[in-house]
Design a protein around this nucleic acid. Sequence first.
DNA 1: TTGTTTTAGTTGAAGCTTCAAGTAAGTGAA
DNA 2: TTCACTTACTTGAAGCTTCAACTAAAACAA
Lengths: 159, 159
Amino acid sequence: MTEPRWLNADERRAWLALLSINTLLPAALDTQLQAAGKLSLFDYNVLAMLSEADGRFLPMSELAARTSASLSRLSHVVTKLQRRGWVEREAHPGDARVTVAHLTEAGMETIVSLAPGHVDAVRALMLDAMTDDDVADLARIGEKIVARLDDDHWILRER
Amino acid sequence: MTEPRWLNADERRAWLALLSINTLLPAALDTQLQAAGKLSLFDYNVLAMLSEADGRFLPMSELAARTSASLSRLSHVVTKLQRRGWVEREAHPGDARVTVAHLTEAGMETIVSLAPGHVDAVRALMLDAMTDDDVADLARIGEKIVARLDDDHWILRER
DNA sequence: TTGTTTTAGTTGAAGCTTCAAGTAAGTGAA
DNA sequence: TTCACTTACTTGAAGCTTCAACTAAAACAA
């Protein structure tokens, strides 16, 4: 009967740190975004992904992939963003099953106005704590973990 | 007028990877724990922190600190765990403001039975993706970020 | 064709988290 | 002492996320 392998010191440190970052970082960014524009980090990311997409629109599935969200969660959130006038739903010309989420002009203005403060917060909360080498290491290790969690995650799609 | 400094390639990779891990990893662990014992990752961590504490009890504030949670969130969850017979609330002898959360025998049995499967999942989902050096790097960098987010976070308390 | 399976998305309800407000006890200052 | 402030929680409501069920269209198979 094999004993379950417990975590060694570094493994435990890495795991606990990730767990804490996981709770604290989104909470801090949520607070900043809530103050700046009454939206959540997830709302922001939905708008950001659309703003970077060709033509500022994406099928719901693709948008869900780029925000690591379930279709259900995304659908509810898009409904909310739609009510605020930031996103519209459109039919897909080639495939009637597909719904396309389209960033409106108002949505674009919102994200343009919010982006600088958000990027500053990301810097202040994590990037400024690291050296350039740390950032490169974190990028490399982080992508390994992402690959393990989701083999063809979109952030791994470029060369 | 200073342009807001945008993210460079590594910074963007690190940030996007962390964001994705942040969504995918808890979701995967939640799924495992939900299947194994109908509890969430947060529930599990509350039980785990109590099981490791001296006497298997902690003041609510300290338990909140060790789970990076708000007191409100913890209070709701402890109520739920109490209903399942895993935790009890007790008065603190020296300070009447303090509530002490105490792991019951049933709670201890629960966590003992769940721990091996959970640790296996943590290994399978993240640790096995990394070399030993990666793990050490992640521990070091992760703790830097935690320190930035919360200067006297409990995971930084040991020497 | 026709039936079956898969893909894409929506919905309502249940459960979880946050937020604001409130209670009660300890601490500190005059 | 007394009053004001801070600390340690709890609570209910509102909002968010997940889950299961459902619809409808596309793809596939016989």
